[in-house]
């Protein structure tokens, strides 16, 4: 594809053109069938009318008006943004440290890759199990509360450990840190070690090297990881439901409640709004760093 685009003089039906179109077609078809088509249906339904559980194909903006004018929408987004921000900070700090350790401190490359694989071990069980395993730990009669009470630090079980923002964020961090580690690990691995010598020779302290050499060179990893984490949290419904003990609603759980009584057009409009907001967020993140440039450029 790259080769084709560089040969600007090539005619429309040159063999290179045909080849690149042939290469692109399968992916394009898959995207068309499994992304574009379902989205088109959602978009169409979002402007339909409905009445007493019946969806009527007649154009209306009422669903959007109802979604956008409700202060529920605002409070749901604020909740999710708050959770996303907290999760983002934690996963970034942990993910960055883990990746840095694996790349810069483990000298043996084989060991580093081995440890990297160890990071994925929790993913050999299902999301649900990893999340639910927190319940017996954090509960009123859970391990932490029992231990603290036995030691005498507290006399009443701490309620905020479970069914709170705390437990939700802990689960997110547990579930999603790997998505931060992987791209950052990848970006760090690509840094030329001679740069560190150069920085050292130029008199940079460790933290200065980190701040002025490593950080700029791992921006693409951070950005990719951030996109994963933020979109995963914003689109989540199950973790919030279980770990907040159902005391918190998310953007998607509100959609689920709509769908449970067949209010499809309203849910479709919410989905369209969520997609728009996420697209804007991702676009904003990408404006900070030209990821494509970072990934393609050779160092």
């Amino acid at each position: 594809m790259k080769a084709a685009s560089r040969r600007s003089g090539a005619s429309w039906l040159s063999p290179a053109r045909v080849k690149s179109f042939a290469l692109v077609t399968p992916l394009a078809l898959v995207l068309l069938m499994f992304v574009v088509a379902p989205l088109a249906v959602v978009m169409a339904v979002s402007v339909f009318r409905y009445d007493n559980f019946e969806v009527i194909p007649a154009f209306t903006f009422e669903n959007y008006a109802s979604v956008l004018s409700s202060h529920l929408t605002l409070s749901l987004y604020l909740t999710m943004l708050k959770l996303a921000a907290m999760t983002w900070v934690c996963t970034l700090l942990i993910g960055y440290s883990v990746a840095a350790f694996l790349v810069f401190h483990v000298r043996n490359r084989l060991v580093a890759i081995g440890l990297f694989l160890v990071c994925t071990v929790p993913f050999w069980t299902s999301n649900v199990i990893r999340m639910i395993s927190w319940l017996p730990l954090l509960g009123k009669q859970g391990v932490i509360n029992q231990a603290l009470m036995a030691v005498g630090v507290i006399h009443e079980p701490l309620q905020m450990l479970l069914f709170s923002d705390f437990s939700v964020v802990i689960s997110y961090v547990h579930l999603f840190t790997i998505f931060m580690i992987v791209p950052i690990f990848n970006a760090m691995s690509r840094i030329d070690p001679s740069l560190f010598e150069a920085a050292h020779d130029a008199g940079a302290a460790r933290w200065q090297t980190l701040l002025w050499v490593v950080l700029p060179l791992t921006k693409s990893g951070i950005v990719l990881g951030s996109i994963f984490v933020v979109t995963l949290v914003m689109g989540d419904f199950y973790v919030v439901k279980v770990m907040s003990g159902g005391t918190d609603a998310s953007v998607v759980s509100a959609m689920y409640d709509d769908i449970s009584t067949l209010l499809f057009p309203h849910a479709a409009a919410s989905a369209a709004v969520l997609m728009l907001i996420l697209t804007i967020m991702v676009a904003a993140i990408l404006r900070l760093v030209d990821v494509r440039q970072e990934l393609v450029s050779s160092r």
Binding site: N52, S66, S70, L72, S75, D248, A249, D257, T261, L263
Partner: peptide
């Protein structure tokens, strides 16, 4: 209910 959609919206306000 007849006011199902309104109710679900308000119920989610309770949740959030």
């Amino acid at each position: 209910m007849d006011e199902n959609q309104y109710m679900i919206q308000r119920w989610n306000e309770f949740k959030s």
